[in-house]
């Protein structure tokens, strides 16, 4: 808590220095923006905010009221724009959809207003640099195998944004970040997978170095949409049902069945594509001993996710020996933590 005030008032770096180590990690996700910093006691502090906003007529709520309700807003002309998690709650109240600055892992070209909003959220999460040019590594998706995604534009945009905030900004692949945070035990060899909202990011890593990274343009949102379609319910309802908690190995009722089916389908799709990419790319590293697969991201939070993953894994002939499949220790934090590892290492990465 003290830390927040320190950041907001831009206090002396000495004060920060006693609490924080240099370097910040930022997970730029379609659904969530997550920032991580390292404390001197070895722990880390993570801040998460929904990557969403909602505009409401300025006269609907009084500003004082919003502040009292702890709802963050900015004023834009005639409108109040509510940022982050609170925008979801309000959207429900108004029966509207939140506006999302990103789609399928990238800044959305349709949301022109989104850019300043995402910047405000990021500023809130990161605070000011502890010293000018402090390292900040942020995650970017890998090229997609099934979407036309322009990463250069997206990446350049966030680099510019972070630089304008006083950071030295560097991008790191999302899947690679997962490997950095989760696979130290295997000397950073193995497969890191991030199951996010808009996409799945996969990175096959050999001794810290990515040998193959790619993304798939379906994940949590895709499950929601399909479940909504087959059940004839609004998408937000599907999201709600899914996040409320479904045991994928023992779905209960029609709705949960549908969710489990699409989960299984997604996992199958991911595995098949890893296999295909591995076999079609020449020059893949040869893994002498079996390597681990680690799953992270909000979509991997579903109960029995790993069980279903293992199930699907057993059904296929995987191209490399795998020692085990596990869930990241903190699935929503992995990417930000991996970015933080990169930032803390600095140029040594």
């Amino acid at each position: 808590m003290t830390e927040t005030s320190v950041q907001q008032h831009g206090q002396s770096t000495a004060e920060i220095g006693t609490e924080r180590l240099l370097g910040k990690g930022l997970d730029v996700g379609t659904a969530n923006l997550v920032a991580a910093v390292q404390n001197t006691d070895g722990s880390i502090t993570v801040k998460l905010e929904r990557n969403a906003f909602l505009d409401v007529k300025a006269d609907v709520y009084s500003k004082a009221m919003l502040t009292k309700l702890k709802v963050p807003y900015v004023v834009r002309g005639e409108q109040l724009i509510v940022l982050g998690e609170a925008s979801f709650e309000l959207a429900n109240v108004f029966g509207r959809e939140t506006r999302r600055p990103m789609r399928d892992g990238l800044i959305s070209p349709n949301e022109v207003d989104g850019l300043p909003m995402i910047r405000l959220i990021i500023e809130r999460l990161l605070g000011e640099p502890a010293q000018p040019g402090e390292n900040c590594y942020f995650s970017v998706p890998a090229p997609s195998i099934d979407r036309d995604n322009n990463i250069i534009y997206h990446q350049g945009l966030f680099e510019g944004m972070l630089r304008s905030m006083g950071y030295t900004a560097r991008a790191i692949n999302e899947g690679h970040a997962v490997v950095f945070s989760e696979l130290a035990e295997s000397d950073f060899s193995g497969i890191g997978i991030s199951f996010g909202g808009g996409m799945v990011n996969i990175c096959v890593c050999f001794k810290t170095i990515p040998a193959l990274s790619f993304s798939i343009g379906r994940s949590g949102d895709w499950i929601d949409k399909n479940v909504a379609d087959v059940l004839g319910i609004p998408k937000s309802r599907a999201t709600f049902l899914k996040e409320r908690g479904v045991d994928l190995a023992a779905p209960n009722g029609r709705e949960e069945e549908a969710i489990a089916i699409y989960y299984r389908n997604l996992i199958q799709y991911v595995l098949t594509n890893i296999k295909a990419r591995f076999e079609s790319s020449s020059n893949m590293p040869v893994f002498q001993s079996p390597v681990p697969i680690v799953c992270s991201g909000g979509t991997a939070l579903a109960k029995s996710f790993i069980t279903v993953f293992q199930d699907e894994f057993k059904k296929m002939k995987f191209p490399i020996p795998v020692s085990g499949i596990s869930l990241a220790s903190e699935p929503l934090n992995s990417v930000a933590k991996g970015c933080l590892v990169a930032a803390a290492l600095g140029d040594a990465v």
Partner: peptide, 8 residues
């Protein structure tokens, strides 16, 4: 809101 996470 802040959360503590396991270290790196």
């Amino acid at each position: 809101k802040e959360r503590q996470g396991s270290g790196i």
